[in-house]
Design a binder for these strands. Structure first.
Length: 925
RNA sequence: AGGCGCGUAGCUCAGUGGUAGAGCACUUCCUUGACAUGGAAGUGGUCGGUGGUUCGAUCCCACUCGCGCCUACCA
């Protein structure tokens, strides 16, 4: 083995080997365990959030697979209607072409070409992360099977009256020329103006003042509203306004929607261009006058001179004309929330169109109950509140999109505009008894991508066909996802799952993980220029490439210099290659229940070092075995103390890891494994085992030590495998045969059984004594700055019979690990020489000062120790002096406090005289 | 406006009604035959503030300050 672990050499080779052997597929036996991957956008690339999520899913999958479950991690991608169409349209634009100048079929052909060309990126990246998904079952939302599922669901929902078509206000993206859902609109506060306009009464008896942030919409006003109880305007209700710039008269209506305290108390009502005004209009039977084209310029229903103007041009023109007419009372600066499309950033218009809607209230009720009943469990549990909050205020879901790329709505219209829904045109004719020659045209719209995503847990398993996979793996075991798509996706999957799978939810647990942010807590985004490609952490990247990556393809190119500067400051050396295992272990360690996770490259470096530590522990084990060539079995009935101890500790570690996986605490699992590996296995066990392995305790003990070394390392590798698949496999291939474990791969080896490694209290107590003695001696060495290579003599005194016996028994360990020249027991009654003294209970360990220790330093050290003990003693005594404490606290807490006091008193009784002795060595001042 | 969350070591974060923890950073010593991506020792925190409950509060409760997210929004 190389001296340093280099992931680059092994990862891709091992993954290819696993995949070629078909080891990711379900094995057909055992309890089913299934996760469906949240389908990433087929044209996208893997970001840190994906990598985090995939690490968690892979850890769960590998863990349950090793535990013998019949395990399926179902992969796939979604077609991302809007995003993909935009990408391809941009490509066309670069060629000087437009979508609208080609046929729909030709365009869709282009999209498929693009998918074939770049759709594999995500899959390649997933492989690099070690994701053990069953590639043979890879699915895409536009596959024929999944498309059939979409049609089936649409038709059934329509049959049940849960899908309807209606003319409503929708969020309209005037760039994409499609409706988008509420969830795809981001409202952010921006600087704008509030225009206060004078609207004259039709009879010339005065005017009212209305305020607006969008003056151009006044062309579509069909009323002015006041509050019914507002005395100022009561007399105006029912009278007419002469709407400026138009020839129209509009009524004054009374509606409680108006807040009399805001502004003038008069509100212009534009039912076709404002959601609130729409409601007011419905209540008062007002006409809905649409004044915009789909591109949001003024249409032919507005006065002629405004027609064709873009909405923002029209705004200027309207304001100018009103000002000229003296109808602008004032203009004030105003902050307002501007709705923008999450893809285009274009200002979204409420726009009156025909759309398809899912009536969600009847679907939401069972979905709420499923979580209330506990059929579905959110982890952490608090997220159920977010889910309930949204579910209980849910609105109908606009599912039609005016795009070409996506699942086309299975609805046909006759010449009169009557609509017929069916699985295909023939089915539609059959269902509605239409003549074969009746001309029908298909609805041009497609469905929201989330509509197909909502079917994912059962469509990927073969629904509507009743496949064996569906029978076995539905409901799936756990959904792993981020809180940002609880509304978009989780809620909708629950609704559709319950509806179409006989009331059975799509998953048992929903594990919600945090959002990966950069090292400074900022959300990672291309426009901020702070994204990190997870594979750049795996493979490393030089500074120039990183800068180039972050500054090309920006939506706002003017940000490039700032991004470059920050990048150069934060990564002056670029990013080192850390390997997949280190990255994965970092994700696991960061997977706390926190909502935000700041990603710190320093952590990755730390876990890269951890990989190297493990690598070198294995290297040591192999060296030990190779040097003697003897791997034969030893007598397990007589394990020496270090062996018994490490087995016991490993058993406790497995217990902690099992508990951690059961509650989705990957941070606990990572910490338990890290601490065991480094602090117990490497720091203590290997060091204790060294002299034995090197033959200093005889051949039998050597054989036994070798056996424990190989066995515990082999078990540890299995326990680490779900989090660090590559390094564990690479080492396991070499260690397992020596440890007597057969098998082609660690990924199919059984998960280590906790019961094989029972707790050994006696061994742990014995080891604790050894560690304590070594530790206090090292403290003396450390604080006295004694070079590690310097062997020191030690004299022991005041020890119990047990101490003396242990000193004799463990002399080898103590000598090696504390760097001793010799350790002798001082004869009873004899006085130790001038020495620095370490305490281990009653046992005193004297390090003669001659030539080694500076009396002043020892005085300082003792002084600190005494002060610390006195401080704790004082606190503990204070507690016990309080009779309420003694009376009310649990007896074991009181007893523990008494023990602590005894310990402090004992140490102080020893330290005080020792300090006096050392002081007496110094010349009098 | 409503909902949720956060504030613990210089930084990033765990945590518990009973002696405050980790990684990184920092200080000192050490290239000893697994590993300098290493070893040994060490420094560092009135757990945001105030009050309450309790024998005891970093933890539970109330209020408060600061920060963040989500949802709905007044023209």
């Amino acid at each position: 083995m190389d001296k340093v672990f280099s992931p680059r050499d092994i990862e891709q080779r091992l993954y290819a080997h696993w995949e070629a052997n078909g080891w990711f597929a379900p094995r057909g036996a055992g309890a089913p365990f299934c996760i469906v991957i949240p389908p990433p956008n087929v044209t996208g690339t893997l970001h840190m959030g994906h990598a985090f999520q995939d690490t968690i899913m892979d850890a769960l999958t590998r863990y349950h697979r090793m535990r013998g479950a019949d395990t399926l991690w179902q992969p796939g991608t979604d077609h991302a209607g809007i995003a993909t169409q935009m990408v391809v349209e941009r490509q066309l634009a670069a060629e000087g072409k437009r979508r609208t100048s080609m046929t729909r079929d030709a365009f869709i052909e282009r999209v498929w070409e693009w998918k074939a060309h770049s759709g594999g990126t995500i899959a390649r990246q997933l492989r690099r992360l070690g994701a053990s998904v069953d590639w043979s079952r890879d699915r895409f939302t536009m596959d024929p099977g999944l498309s059939a599922a979409v049609t089936e669901v649409f038709v059934k929902l329509h049959e049940d009256g849960l899908i309807y078509r209606g003319k409503r206000l929708v969020n309209w993206d005037p760039v994409l020329l499609t409706a988008v859902s509420d969830l795809e609109v981001l409202s952010e506060e921006e600087d704008g103006h509030l225009w206060h306009l004078r609207y004259p009464l039709a009879d010339g008896s005065g005017h009212v003042v209305v305020a607006t942030t969008r003056p151009e919409t006044m062309l579509g006003d069909t009323a002015v509203a006041v509050h019914p109880d507002d005395d100022r305007y009561r007399a105006l209700v029912g009278r007419d306004i002469a709407l400026p710039l138009t020839e129209r008269r509009i009524p004054v209506v009374a509606d409680t929607y108006v807040d009399p305290a805001f502004g003038s108390g008069c509100v212009k009502i534009t039912p076709a261009h404002d959601f609130n005004d729409y409601e007011v209009g419905e209540r008062h039977g007002l006409p809905k006058l649409n004044i915009f084209t789909p591109q949001a310029s003024i249409n032919d229903d507005a006065p002629e001179r405004f027609r064709g103007l873009d909405r923002f041009e029209a705004r200027k023109r309207v304001v100018a004309e009103l000002e000229a007419a003296g109808l602008v009372e004032r203009i004030e600066a105003h902050k307002l929330k501007v709705p923008r499309g999450d893809r285009t950033r274009a200002v979204i218009e409420p726009y009156l169109t025909d759309q398809w809607y899912v009536r969600v209230a009847p679907l939401a009720q069972p979905a709420i109950e499923a979580v209330e009943r506990g059929d579905i469990r959110f982890v952490p549990g608090n997220w159920s509140k977010t889910y309930f909050e949204w579910m209980r205020n849910i609105k109908d879901w606009c599912v039609s999109r005016q795009l070409w790329w996506g699942h086309r709505i299975p609805a046909w219209y006759d010449a009169a505009g009557r609509v017929y829904v069916g699985r295909d045109e023939a089915d539609a004719r059959r269902r509605h008894n239409l003549a074969p020659d009746l001309p029908l045209t298909r609805d041009p719209d497609v469905l929201d991508t989330w509509f197909s995503s909502a079917l994912w847990p059962f469509s990927t398993l073969g629904w509507p066909a009743r496949t064996p996979e569906l029978a076995k793996f539905y409901p799936t075991s756990v959904l792993v996802t981020g809180f940002d798509i609880i509304f978009f996706w989780v809620a909708r999957m629950v609704m559709f799952g319950l509806k179409f799978m006989d009331g059975r939810p799509p998953f048992r647990d929903v594990y919600i993980h945090g959002l990966i942010r950069d090292g400074e807590g900022q959300k990672m985004s291309k426009s901020k220029g702070n994204v990190i490609d997870p594979l750049d952490i795996v493979d490393g990247i030089d500074l120039e490439s990183l800068v180039a990556k972050r500054t090309t393809g920006l939506m706002q190119p003017h940000l490039a210099p700032a991004i470059e500067k920050t990048t150069r400051r934060q990564f002056p050396q670029g990013i080192e290659p850390y390997g997949t295992d280190a990255l994965r272990f970092t994700f696991a360690a960061l997977a706390t229940q926190s909502r935000d996770i700041s990603f710190d490259l320093g952590r990755v470096a730390g876990y890269r070092n951890f990989c190297n530590k493990l690598w070198n522990a294995a290297r040591f084990a192999l060296l030990m075995v190779e040097s003697t060539g003897d791997t034969g079995a030893a007598d397990a009935s007589d394990f020496p103390i270090a062996d018994r101890w490490i087995r016991s500790r490993l058993g406790r570690t497995l217990e902690a890891v099992d508990a951690a996986f059961a509650e989705y605490r990957f941070d606990y699992a990572a910490t338990a494994l890290y601490e065991f590996t480094w602090y117990e296995f490497c720091d203590w066990y290997l060091e204790l085992a060294k002299p034995v392995l090197q033959g200093e305790a005889g051949a039998a003990a050597q054989r036994t030590a070798r056996r424990t070394l190989l066995e515990t390392l082999e078990i540890l590798l299995r326990a680490l495998h779900p989090l660090m698949p590559f390094i564990t496999e690479e080492i396991w291939q070499r260690i397992a045969p020596l440890a007597g474990r057969a098998g082609a791969t660690v990924m199919l080896a059984p998960w280590p059984a906790r019961a094989d490694l029972p707790v050994d209290e006696a061994a742990e107590a014995e080891a604790a004594w050894i560690q304590r003695v070594i530790l206090v001696l090292r403290q003396v060495r450390g604080e006295m700055n004694i070079a590690p290579s310097r062997r020191i003599p030690v004299l022991a005194s005041h020890g119990s019979a047990g101490d003396t016996e242990r000193l004799a028994r463990h002399g080898l360990y103590l000598t090696r690990l504390a760097g001793l020249e010799r350790i002798d027991v001082l004869a009873a009654g004899a006085h130790p020489p001038a020495a620095a003294t370490a305490l281990a209970g009653d046992l005193q360990l004297h390090v003669p000062m001659a030539g080694l220790i500076d009396a002043g330093a020892e005085i300082e050290r003792l002084g600190k120790l005494i002060a610390k003990n006195e401080n704790e003693l004082k606190k503990a005594r204070g507690k016990l002096a309080n009779e309420n404490f003694v009376r009310n606290a649990p007896p074991d807490v009181v007893a523990q406090e008494r023990e602590r006091i005894a310990g402090f008193e004992r140490d102080l009784a020893q330290l005080g005289p020792q300090l006096a002795r050392v002081r007496s060595l110094l010349p009098a001042p």
